[in-house]
Every structure is written in structure tokens, then in C-alpha cells.
């Protein structure tokens, strides 16, 4: 896989971005990252436990020379919370990258567009490289790009739902109009879901539950890696157009029993 893409001034080869939540141990997280081939992994920002402040950290299991950390603002329901979390993440991890989430509702975890746009404006002004988790809405994606986001991250389906790409037509419009990478974020359930998004031209896919929630997370991590590689190859190869009727792939001449005229 030689094709690469750029994000925040860095070049990446792997088109699979993985989360680090929901694993049974830090060691399993480490091995899943390894199997996935991901070069970017997301982490959440949370209060330190004052009862056990010295316990081991996930970061001890991530080789930051090879892996780029992408902190998120998961769990933030207002622009203000997301902005403060972003600033804390930058201070703690020394990175300007932020996966910006402003969540609108606990049940759907759909983004709050208004809050997302407001937080984006502030954070871009402060020099953050804002990667926004957004609805699969072409207009919002366009606004986010115009505000200076170096990529947009529309959802395929609700976070953790495993439903796969629910609105390929919206994604197609987003892909057609975007001048920045489009990263499909959330909702991927299995390998084919990831492949479809990449085949359509998405630059990368981001997932967590699809891997961590599988019966065998390490195997699924590998499956996702291969799916994304296959999807990218198919995208570069250029698929055939869809047609309603058959088109034979064997020669039409020399069929036995045919009369020679």
C-alpha cells in the first residue's frame, strides 16, 4: 500500500484509525492496535482517579514514535466543555490534534451541530488541528471545511451501533464536494462496512467498538486492516459501472452447437 495522505502536516499510510476504549486490558489494546496497522489512535481525556493516581497508564502501551495520538472530546455536551477538554488534551499530550465531539443527545450520541461549529471556530483560532465528528450532512461538512478543518469526519451510523454506512448518497455528496480528507467515523460493524466507505473514496475510517466489541478483537483488527487495504485498492483500480442487465465475460464466438453462418 503505497498511497498516502496528509493530516495536520503529517503523512500517513494506514487508512484505519482506531479507538482504544472497551478492551479487556491495555495489553489487548496494544495488540489490537498492532494487528490493525493503525498509525493514529484516539484516546479520551478524563479526570485522574485520586484514589489510585499512580496506576499504570494506557500511554505506557503506545509507542508514540510510531503511533500518533488523537485525543478526543468524547462525553462533552457543550462547546465550552469540548473547548476546555481540547486545551487540557493539548497540555497533557503535547499535540494540536483534536477529534472534536460535541454530543447532542445521550441516546443517539449524534453531534450537536451548533455546538460543534462554535467549538470549531474557537479551536481553529487557537491553532488546533480540528478533526470534527459530524453528522453525514454535506452542508455541515462544507462549513467545517471552510472554517479550517483539515478533514471532516461524518458518521456512517450512530457510535457503537455497528449498522454500517446508512446513507451512502450523503457520503457521496460529501466526498464530491470536499477538498479535504473525509474520514468516516463511527457506526462500522464489520469489515465490509469499512471496505465500502473506502471504496467510495473516503480517505480513512475510524472505529472502536467494531473491533473491541468483536468476539475476537485481534482477528477483527486484522480483518479491518485488510478490508481498508482492499477498499483502497478497489477505489484506485476503479470499479465497473453498475448495469441492470448481464454482460458476458466469455467470448461470444466459437460456442459449441452454434451454426456457422
Amino acid at each position: 500500500m503505497s498511497s498516502t495522505y496528509e493530516l495536520g502536516g503529517r503523512t500517513f499510510t494506514s487508512r484505519l484509525i482506531v479507538g482504544t476504549g472497551k478492551y479487556s486490558s491495555f495489553e489487548e489494546t496494544r495488540r489490537a492496535i498492532e494487528e490493525s496497522g493503525a498509525e493514529i489512535v484516539t484516546v479520551a481525556i478524563r479526570r485522574i482517579s485520586l484514589n489510585d493516581p499512580g496506576k499504570e497508564s494506557l500511554l505506557d502501551y503506545i509507542d508514540r514514535d510510531r503511533i500518533t495520538l488523537l485525543p478526543n472530546t468524547a462525553g462533552c455536551y457543550t462547546a465550552e466543555e469540548a473547548i476546555l477538554t481540547s486545551r487540557l488534551a493539548r497540555e497533557a499530550l503535547g499535540t494540536d490534534l483534536i477529534k472534536l465531539e460535541v454530543i447532542g443527545d445521550e441516546k443517539t450520541l449524534f453531534p450537536d451541530n451548533e455546538g460543534l461549529l462554535r467549538a470549531t471556530k474557537t479551536l481553529v483560532d487557537e491553532g488546533f488541528v480540528v478533526l470534527p465528528y459530524t453528522n453525514d450532512d454535506p452542508i455541515t461538512c462544507k462549513k467545517l471545511e471552510e472554517m479550517g478543518c483539515p478533514a471532516v469526519m461524518p458518521l456512517a451510523a450512530p457510535i457503537g451501533s455497528g449498522l454500517g454506512l446508512q446513507n451512502p448518497y450523503n457520503l457521496q455528496i460529501i466526498l464530491e464536494q470536499a477538498h479535504v480528507p473525509v474520514i468516516v467515523d463511527a457506526g462500522v460493524g464489520t469489515a465490509s462496512d469499512a471496505a465500502i466507505a473506502i471504496e467510495m473514496g473516503a480517505t480513512a475510517v475510524l472505529m472502536n467498538t467494531g473491533i473491541a466489541g468483536a468476539k475476537d478483537p485481534l482477528k477483527m483488527a486484522r480483518a479491518m486492516r485488510l478490508a481498508v487495504e482492499a477498499g483502497r485498492l478497489a477505489y484506485e483500480a476503479g470499479r465497473i459501472p453498475k448495469k441492470l442487465y448481464a454482460s458476458a465475460s466469455s467470448p461470444l464466438e466459437g460456442v459449441i452447437g452454434a451454426s456457422n453462418s
Partner: peptide, 10 residues
């Protein structure tokens, strides 16, 4: 006082 923990999305 915060630190990074495992997480994907909300």
C-alpha cells in the same frame, strides 16, 4: 487534573 484514557468516541 486529567490524563488520557482508552476511548474511541463518546
Amino acid at each position: 487534573i486529567i490524563h488520557a484514557v482508552g476511548g474511541g468516541a463518546s
